[in-house]
Each structure stands twice: as structure tokens, then as C-alpha cells.
Simulated assay, not measured.
Amino acid sequence: MVFFHHFNPCKNSTGTIGLFLERVCEQWHVGVTIFFVLSGLLISLRYFDSIELTRNWAGRYMRNRLARIYPLYFLLSAVTIFFAATCPDLGLMPEWQTFSNPERGMLTFLNLSFLRGFFSSFKFSGISQGWSLTVEESFYLIAPFLLIGIKYRKQLIWLYAPALIMAGLLLTKIFAPLNLFGFFGSDTFLFNYTFFGRSTEFIIGIALGLLVKKELLANHHADGFKWTLAGVTWIAGSILVLVFLDSPNDFDNGLINPLSIAINNALLPVGIAMLFYGLIFERTLIQKMLESRLMDALGKSSYAFYLVHLGIFSLLLDKYLTESIVVKFVFLNGLAFLLYKLVEHPMHKKLAWR
């Protein structure tokens, strides 16, 4: 979904149906929302019963999280920065050419440390789609405290999202007037690109994880496909509402309409949770397809695909081979699978705490 959001196959279509499909693909940024809900689900399933606020546990937890994400991100970020510095004609990080050396050093540090996602001026620098990893790593840091709170009192889960949003609004109120390269630069930036603004997606995922754990303990097995169908319908309906509300040319600024933000950040995740619940407990054709060997392989390499689908490799394909979206999709999936096999998985095994 994110790939076809960035490389819209219906771009510049004519006719009512073509224009409608173009607008639909523009809203497929919701793939990121699906990912955030999934993250909340998986972290709660994996760690709720074993969590400890001790130095050893925290060290293992963060080491495992970084081992999964950082090695490949570091490698591809370094490649991107190298090409931005040596091949300006490719158009990677155009700000690099106007920055002084100290500013370039700061930009490199922000990219390699995941911190660039807190700055609206730098959020699309380096591996542009990697802004979401700042959100993801923020969740990883805060998740243990959220889970410990729920262990103490389950009702706290309903206060988490409002409290985190209020904290984000306070940070924006403090830092936006200072113009620190867009550090918490606006409310729109807060709700599109920071963990505080998008915390509802993770919290709904955590709530789903607690429900799934309860159902699994009860050996629950659902019949039919009502939750899967309800989830798909809810997601499709949310996308249609976003199509109606949003301008098709607002990618650089994210969702601007407050109602669109509310739908993407709070209403849509409910449908995503329904779909995941159905995929876990209901035997459907979608479930069988997603558990096939091909989809399993694509799933394992999906993080690598996310990192390479937009950036240096895509630009090199455009420049030296083809601009075909189909060829690009197939080639970059193949590259992602190789990166998973040769870099991501071996490094994860080597660095993760056993």
C-alpha cells in the first residue's frame, strides 16, 4: 500500500473512474497506520507477561529491538548520504548541497540516530520514508512503562492516548515558536509524524493484544468471517471518507484536515484491530493466503522493502533502467529479499540477546 501510495499507478488518469482510483491510491499511506497498530499488538503479546523494570530486562529488550531495525537502516542511510554528497544530480537530500559542513554533520547525526523524525525540516531527509522509525522507536522506549501501568490497573489504558496527545501538544506549544528546524513545529506535524500525536494507533494495538491473549487462554476459535469482513469494510470505508475529505496534493504536509487526522489516527485503527482479530481467529481465504510460503517470505523482507522502495535504488532504476512501476515493484522486492537474507537476518541473529 505504501509503495503504491508513493508510485501511484493511476497518476494523471483521466475520466471519473481513473481520477477516483488515483485519489484512492493517494490515501494508501494508511499502510503506516496498519503497521503502527500491528506494532502495539505484537509488543503487548510478546512482553506483557514477562516485563520487568530491571536493568537486565531493559538491556535485553532494547538490544533486541535495535538488532531488528538498526543494522540495515544504518547501512542504507550511509549509502544514501554518500550518494547525496557525491552525486547531487540524483536529487537525494537537496538540502545537503546548501548546508555548511557543521550542518551536514548535524543532518547525518539526526538521520543515523532516528532523531530526524522530530524535526519537520528534516523528516524526509535521508531515507525519506524512515521518518516512521522515529515514531516506532519512541513507542519501543515508552511501551514497557505503558505495559507496567496496565499490569497495575487495566483501566489506565483508556487514559494513555489522551495523556500522550496532551504531552505532545504541550511540547509543540513550547518548541514551535523557537523555530528549531521544526522541532515539534506544529500541531499538524505532531499528529502526522510523532509518536505523541499517533499514540492512539499503538494503544489500540496494545488493547487488541490483551484481548487476543485472553481469547487464546480460553482456547477461543471463531467461526465464519464476520470480523475479517468487518475489518476490511471498515478500512475501505475509512479510506473512502479520506478520499472525500482530503486534497490529492497534500503529501508533503501529511493530513491537514482535522477530521481526516481523527479518522486516520483514531477511527481507522479500530477497523484494523477488527481485521487482525479476524485474521488470528477466523479461517478465511485471506488468512490462508497470508500464511503461504510466498507471503511469509515477503513478510520477512517487508522491512527491507520499506527502506529501499523509495530513495537511491528507485532513482537509479529510473535513471539507468526503467520507470515502469511494475518492474520497480518486482525488482525492489527481490532486492529486499536479498538484503533480508544477506544482511538483516544474519545481523539480527548476531546482535540479538539470546
Score class of each variant (00 low, 15 high):
residue 310 L to E: 06
residue 289 M to C: 03
residue 300 K to I: 06
residue 128 S to L: 08
residue 343 V to N: 01
residue 71 P to M: 10
residue 353 W to V: 05
residue 127 I to A: 04
residue 352 A to Y: 06
residue 237 G to C: 12
residue 118 F to M: 14
residue 314 S to F: 08
residue 90 L to H: 04
residue 159 L to R: 12
residue 88 P to T: 02
residue 36 F to G: 02
residue 177 P to T: 11
residue 330 V to H: 10
residue 55 R to S: 13
residue 106 M to E: 14
residue 62 M to F: 15
residue 139 F to L: 02
residue 223 D to P: 00
residue 278 G to P: 00
residue 242 L to F: 02
residue 133 L to M: 09
residue 6 H to S: 11
residue 172 T to R: 00
residue 133 L to Y: 02
residue 331 F to I: 15
residue 252 D to F: 15
residue 103 E to T: 14
residue 62 M to I: 15
residue 47 Y to G: 06
residue 321 L to G: 01
residue 251 F to V: 14
residue 110 L to G: 06
residue 315 L to M: 12
residue 171 L to D: 03
residue 283 R to A: 11
residue 230 A to M: 08
residue 161 A to E: 10
residue 229 L to Y: 05
residue 170 L to R: 07
residue 127 I to L: 15
residue 315 L to G: 03
residue 102 P to Y: 13
residue 100 S to D: 09
residue 197 G to Q: 12
residue 177 P to I: 12
residue 161 A to W: 12
residue 65 R to F: 05
residue 12 N to E: 09
residue 296 D to K: 05
residue 88 P to D: 01
residue 91 G to F: 05
residue 45 L to H: 04
residue 178 L to P: 06
residue 100 S to F: 00
residue 58 A to L: 15
residue 290 L to S: 03
residue 37 V to L: 07
residue 271 G to Y: 05
residue 238 S to K: 08
residue 73 Y to A: 04
residue 349 K to D: 14
residue 343 V to C: 03
residue 331 F to W: 13
residue 305 F to W: 07
residue 111 N to M: 14
residue 247 S to V: 07
residue 340 Y to I: 05
residue 315 L to T: 11
residue 340 Y to Q: 03
residue 181 F to T: 06
residue 345 H to Y: 12
residue 107 L to E: 05
residue 353 W to R: 07
residue 351 L to N: 06
residue 149 G to Q: 15
residue 207 A to I: 07
residue 49 D to Q: 08
residue 253 N to H: 14
residue 122 F to E: 13
residue 200 T to E: 07
residue 173 K to H: 09
residue 211 L to W: 15
residue 11 K to N: 07
residue 183 F to T: 09
residue 239 I to W: 00
residue 199 S to V: 09
residue 307 L to T: 02
residue 140 Y to K: 12
residue 293 R to I: 05
residue 271 G to N: 05
